[in-house]
Simulated scan of single mutants.
Amino acid sequence: MIDSRAFRDALGCYPTGVTIVSTYAGGVALGMTVNSFASVSLEPPLVLWSIERTTHRYDLLRNAKDYAINILAHDQSAMAELCAHEANLAACGASWSGDVAPLIDGAVARLLCRQHAVHSGGDHDIIIGEVIAFDTLRPVESLLFSRGSYGKAG
């Protein structure tokens, strides 16, 4: 049997990018720090991320028809840390624009997505989104997460 803490530590040896997946609910901008983000397809443009079924933000984000994936810059680690625990983007110090989903200011890139498919994956759901618009804002290093700490690429 695999020890889940040891397995998590082993996975932490692989640096990942850091994103905040964001959506509107009841007129409030909400989000969650996510590092399980990857590209899937160029034609059509598809990306994926996953969410643990026991998280308190599961229903909100799992059922969001439209959402944004905000790829964070290296100087946004404080926001990433806050948003890992707090759903309200304003409480996390974020500013944003966008009518369909919150597009976080200062991100390296922002992908506006529409939910395309959801697949079960153990204790997580894998959410595939079709990218309907995107922009790249800042030519700076992205925020990385490895071995429990934030850093930057490059």
Rank of each mutant, 00 (worst) to 15 (best):
G154D: 10
P139Q: 12
E52N: 15
A107K: 05
V21P: 00
G121V: 13
G148F: 02
L112Q: 04
F145V: 05
D135F: 11
G151N: 07
E52T: 13
G26M: 09
A73S: 15
A80W: 01
G121E: 01
G122K: 11
R57W: 13
I128K: 05
D123W: 14
A73Y: 08
T19F: 08
G93F: 13
L111E: 00
F145N: 05
L111H: 02
V108W: 03
S146Q: 12
A80L: 00
W49F: 15
D75T: 13
I2V: 15
S146R: 13
A94W: 01
V140D: 02
V47W: 01
I69G: 03
P15G: 08
A117L: 12
G129R: 02
Y24R: 01
D123H: 14
R57Q: 06
S142G: 11
E86H: 10
A117N: 12
G31I: 03
I51W: 02
H116A: 14
A25I: 10
D99L: 12
A91Q: 05
A6S: 15
P15W: 03
I104C: 06
M1V: 06
E43V: 15
T16V: 12
A91M: 06
S39L: 05
G121C: 12
M1D: 03
A94H: 01
G98T: 11
I132Y: 00
G122H: 13
G98Q: 05
